[in-house]
């Protein structure tokens, strides 16, 4: 008994010690994982640790904000820097989940693309969700989302991100809605019904994915013939020798941003990290590692011309592409995601 009691005491002490031990000089940076995280490690985490001695604990998630909310409400914030997509940034900022950021501490606003500057966030990179395919498996190249829906011409499974965002836009594009009208149509109940009706036609041929690392793998293995994919993940697979191609026509681009969960005990280090990651030379390294465009315009000249041609920000690639409507998704996100989830499970 006595032994057991002292064991127990030791156990509790060690456990508590563990909890206290996390309050060191490390910062926890949460990103979307996979190839993008690897590139961030090369361009940002490792050099930052080298320059400042602050260790970066890397974690990944798929964009869900529940943990952030729980942490902030509990006043027990263990994530210090977080990569978020733009609707989540706006929503989180309004809901008080993120710290307000004094941009002067990060850099000169004029150096950045406008979408990278906001109340609670600092842009990281411009990325794009685009149609990708395995050129070894398809005789003819698809050129649009209409081709994506054309099962007779291109038989086989297609991959789409499991969620309403982007999926509904692609459905409308495939249904002949021009890029400039997509969000106007989607804002009406009839437009939403139209998008779901279009998805119904393809449903049997869709394989849903959640993590960005999945589409290149599934395309390479032949499980999929085409997929919506993050363009950077496809370019990373190209570097590994896979013959995957991106169709820029009908792609949707967005800026991912850093945000600091409200109440982070390491706000100063977090801000220092964000400043570090926003430096043009580091942004250029990042774009060299993965094909995402820099948000710091000063990084552009430092990027190799060959690399630049493969970025979503290249003028050639911008043709036929559209930007994410952040406001639309802030407003309709919850309802559409819920309806999408009910639809997908049926």
């Amino acid at each position: 008994m006595k032994h057991a009691a002292s064991f127990l005491r030791a156990a509790v002490l060690v456990a508590l010690g563990g909890a206290v031990g996390t309050a060191s000089a490390d910062i926890t940076v949460i990103s979307f994982g996979g190839a993008s995280q690897k590139a961030q490690d090369k361009a940002y985490y490792a050099p930052f640790t080298k320059a400042t001695g602050v260790k970066v604990v890397a974690g990944e998630y798929n964009g869900e904000q529940a943990k952030v909310k729980a942490m902030v409400e509990a006043g027990n914030v263990t994530w210090d820097v977080l990569e978020v997509e733009s609707p989540e940034l706006v929503r989180g900022c309004e809901e008080g989940l993120f710290e307000k950021i004094d941009f002067a501490q990060v850099g000169d606003k004029a150096d950045f693309v406008p979408a990278a500057v906001s109340e609670c966030g600092v842009g990281i990179f411009v990325w794009s969700t685009a149609l990708a395919y395995n050129a070894d498996r398809l005789k003819e190249a698809p050129t649009s989302w209409a081709d994506f829906w054309n099962v007779d011409k291109f038989p086989g499974k297609r991959g789409l991100r499991k969620g309403a965002k982007y999926t509904l836009e692609f459905a409308l594009l495939a249904d002949g809605v021009p890029t400039s009208e997509v969000y106007k149509v989607l804002a009406t109940p009839a437009g939403v019904d139209r998008a779901f009706a279009k998805l119904d036609k393809l449903k049997a041929n869709i394989q849903w994915w959640e993590a960005g690392a999945q589409p290149p793998q599934l395309l390479a293995s032949g499980d999929l013939v085409m997929s919506a994919a993050y363009n950077g993940r496809i370019s990373a697979a190209q570097v590994e020798g896979k013959n995957l191609k991106v169709v820029w026509n009908g792609s949707i681009y967005d800026v991912d941003s850093w945000a600091i969960p409200k109440g982070s005990p390491k706000k100063a280090e977090a801000l220092k990290f964000i400043r570090f990651a926003s430096q043009p030379e580091n942004q250029a390294v990042f774009s060299g590692e993965i094909a995402y465009g820099p948000v710091n315009l000063k990084a552009v000249p430092a990027i190799d011309a060959k690399v630049a041609a493969g970025l979503p920000t290249a003028p050639e690639n911008m043709k036929g592409a559209m930007a994410t409507d952040t406001e639309f998704w802030v407003e309709h996100g919850e309802n559409l995601e819920q309806r999408f989830n009910a639809w997908a499970a049926r």
């Binding site: 563990g18 909890a19 996390t22 943990k67 729980a70 942490m71 409400e73 509990a74 006043g75 027990n76 263990t78």
Partner: peptide
């Protein structure tokens, strides 16, 4: 979460 026991 409110007790600070998540992430510990």
């Amino acid at each position: 979460a409110p007790l600070g026991l998540t992430g510990s």
